[in-house]
Computed example of a mutant assay.
Amino acid sequence: MKTYALKFKQNIPISIDEAWDFFSSPLNLQKITPDDMRFVVTSDYTADTKMYAGMIITYKISPLLGIKMDWMTEITHVADKQYFVDEQRFGPYALWHHQHHFKEIPGGIEMTDILHYAIPYSVIGTIANNVFVGKKVRDIFKYRTKVIEDMFGKM
């Protein structure tokens, strides 16, 4: 099984408190995910719910051709106002390990996403990643960058 690693950085002109408040709320993930993914958090959380180690979050997604899928991630690590990690427990990937890091910088914060993922089905998964999955994942993060800039501004 081939594993892929991607890293994305974005500087945002907000405080670490504001960043943590927004990004540690599971429901806000819907706000920064492309509409064509039809991404919906199905866990019974409120807007005030904050991530904690051991938290399970369930979703409905349509990553390909409008086909609906269930996805479940666990928040495995949390360091307040520094980072959190989500890992897939059930879903479309053979592996999904996503780190979210936050660091104060002059004028705002630097947000870094480090993603490791793998596609199931061996050679077919590798071909699928090369043909469309890898581009789709990068496009999702490109979309997030734009939405976050629209919401919070650009540095």
Rank of each mutant, 00 (worst) to 15 (best):
M37R: 08
K60E: 15
L95M: 13
M72H: 05
K81P: 01
F152I: 11
T58P: 00
Q99G: 00
V85A: 03
F39K: 05
Y143T: 02
K7L: 12
H101G: 05
F23T: 00
M37L: 15
G107S: 14
K31H: 13
S25P: 00
I148C: 04
L64I: 15
H101E: 13
V40D: 01
L115D: 09
L6Q: 13
A128R: 05
G134D: 10
Y143Q: 00
I57S: 01
F132T: 08
K9L: 07
I119N: 01
S43W: 01
L6Y: 13
K50F: 05
I119W: 03
V85I: 12
P34G: 06
T42S: 08
T42W: 07
G134S: 11
P120G: 06
I61M: 13
Y52W: 06
T3V: 15
S15W: 05
I109Q: 03
I140G: 02
T3P: 00
G125K: 03
M1E: 10
F152P: 04
F22A: 02
I61E: 04
L6V: 12
Q10S: 11
P34L: 11
V137S: 01
V133K: 02
S25N: 14
D44G: 03
D139F: 00
S122F: 14
I114N: 04
V147P: 02
D21Y: 13
G125L: 08
Y117Q: 05
H100W: 03
I16F: 00
D70W: 09
R38W: 00
Y83M: 13
P92S: 12
Y143R: 01
